[in-house]
Computed example of a mutant assay.
Amino acid sequence: MKTEFTLLTMSDNFPDEESCIKYFEKMRWDGKVVSPYDPASKVYKCSNGKYKCKNTGRYFDVKTGTAFANTKIPMRAWFYTMMLFLSHKRGVSSCQLARDLGITQKTAWNMLHKIRQYMAMENEQTLSGEVEIDETFVGGKNKNRHKDKKVERCQGRSFK
Rank of each mutant, 00 (worst) to 15 (best):
residue 141 K to C: 11
residue 73 I to T: 15
residue 153 R to N: 15
residue 100 D to R: 07
residue 60 F to C: 08
residue 130 E to G: 00
residue 7 L to K: 11
residue 31 G to E: 06
residue 131 V to L: 13
residue 29 W to M: 03
residue 72 K to G: 12
residue 57 G to A: 05
residue 110 N to L: 10
residue 86 L to K: 08
residue 76 R to A: 00
residue 21 I to M: 09
residue 53 C to M: 02
residue 95 C to W: 06
residue 57 G to D: 06
residue 130 E to P: 01
residue 15 P to A: 05
residue 109 W to Q: 06
residue 137 F to V: 13
residue 153 R to H: 14
residue 111 M to G: 03
residue 61 D to H: 01
residue 127 L to H: 08
residue 73 I to A: 00
residue 99 R to M: 11
residue 142 N to P: 05
residue 85 F to D: 14
residue 119 M to K: 01
residue 16 D to V: 04
residue 123 N to R: 13
residue 29 W to T: 07
residue 64 T to G: 01
residue 46 C to H: 03
residue 43 V to E: 11
residue 90 R to N: 14
residue 25 E to S: 09
residue 43 V to M: 09
residue 112 L to T: 02
residue 109 W to T: 02
residue 108 A to T: 03
residue 144 N to R: 08
residue 116 R to N: 08
residue 51 Y to D: 03
residue 70 N to E: 11
residue 64 T to L: 04
residue 54 K to P: 00
residue 88 H to R: 15
residue 128 S to H: 14
residue 103 I to V: 15
residue 101 L to I: 01
residue 15 P to V: 05
residue 33 V to L: 01
residue 55 N to H: 09
residue 92 V to I: 15
residue 119 M to H: 02
residue 83 M to T: 09
residue 5 F to R: 09
residue 146 H to T: 13
residue 31 G to Q: 06
residue 137 F to I: 13
residue 154 C to M: 04
residue 13 N to H: 07
residue 131 V to T: 14
residue 147 K to F: 14
residue 148 D to L: 12
residue 41 S to T: 13
residue 131 V to M: 09
residue 32 K to T: 14
residue 78 W to D: 05
residue 60 F to L: 11
residue 144 N to D: 15
residue 89 K to S: 12
residue 29 W to I: 10
residue 46 C to L: 15
residue 104 T to H: 02
residue 9 T to D: 02
